[in-house]
């Protein structure tokens, strides 16, 4: 009974239990990542297969990945495809998001509905017909084809989220623009877009990551090692026939560090947009 004075007062036992739970959960969250980082430092053939042996720690795997494999090519391909996807997706999603946020036009409801329904589409419905379509257009095994495909996954969410963001920008800004003689494009470009920078940063990041981490399409569409993205290329390190876990872990670390840093910088905004955006629908 006495425990119920105030929520901030807690018995030492309860505190210890909370900390113990959180420490255990944090350990589970971190362990696989830490283990990969540790294994990446174990140089030498098959050294990864001795989990308890930490005698040969150095950066040998890293220099091997960078010098003797196509890792840098794949990295470049991934960057190229992701940046193109990001730039195109943000641009067209922003104009569309603004249109559905501010203007009521015939087809408005249909557009909103389209954005929602496309977010639900499973790749399996589309991967075969898209593959046929792309091979008809000779876009299989090309960066352009992959970027176009990624737009279908990135754009609906980005437009949806940016609409939510534009909704929070006061309409008086638009009216002021109108009074100053700007047409809607001008208002959008000069007044609203600069104010929407945080929202734009989040969708830019989201669309970048969509392309960066995609597996199924990249695996189907890209057919030569010179065109592989990271998600496809990494698979070649460990297959039925070989297990180059040293190379695999070293490249995992090289990929994960920039991704994790960027992620941690924007994640608060990402969640807010994700849940508020779809809750309104």
């Amino acid at each position: 009974m006495s425990r119920r004075h105030h929520r901030n007062k807690r018995s030492p036992l309860a505190s210890a239990a909370i900390h113990a739970t959180l420490i255990a959960a944090s350990f589970i969250a971190i362990f696989p990542i830490a283990w990969v980082a540790l294994t990446s430092l174990k140089t030498g053939n098959g050294q990864w297969a001795h989990p308890g042996d930490f005698s040969h720690l150095n950066f040998g795997n890293y220099s091997k990945v960078l010098n003797d494999t196509d890792f840098l090519t794949w990295f470049g391909n991934s960057i190229l495809v992701s940046v193109l996807t990001m730039a195109l997706a943000v641009f067209i999603a922003a104009t569309c998001g603004y249109a559905v946020s501010r203007m009521r036009f015939p087809g408005y409801r249909a557009t909103m509905w389209l954005l929602l329904i496309v977010q639900m589409f499973p790749i399996a419905v589309l991967i075969v017909p898209l593959y046929n379509l792309m091979s008809k257009l000779h876009l299989v095994n090309s960066y352009a084809g992959l970027v176009l495909v990624y737009l279908t996954t990135a754009v609906p969410y980005c437009a949806w989220m940016l609409k939510g963001y534009f909704d929070t920008i006061p309409i008086e800004i638009d009216e002021a623009g109108k009074v100053d003689g700007l047409n809607p494009f001008g208002t959008f470009w000069r007044l609203v877009l600069p104010l929407a920078r945080p929202g734009l940063a989040v969708v830019a990041f989201y669309s970048f990551l969509t392309a960066w981490a995609e597996v199924a399409f990249a695996n189907t569409f890209m057919q030569g090692s010179d065109k592989y993205t990271l998600a496809v290329g990494l698979r070649t390190f460990v297959s039925q026939y070989k297990g180059e876990w040293g190379l695999m872990t070293a490249s995992s670390v090289l990929i994960a560090i920039p991704a994790a840093v960027m992620f941690l910088l924007v994640q608060r905004n990402l969640v807010a947009g994700l849940t508020s955006g779809s809750a309104k629908g």
């Binding site: 460990v238 992620f263 994640q267």
Partner: peptide, 13 residues
């Protein structure tokens, strides 16, 4: 952190 790691990297880990 598990969310911050790209999915394919986590799968290989």
């Amino acid at each position: 952190l598990p969310w911050a790691i790209p999915g394919f990297v986590a799968a290989f880990a």
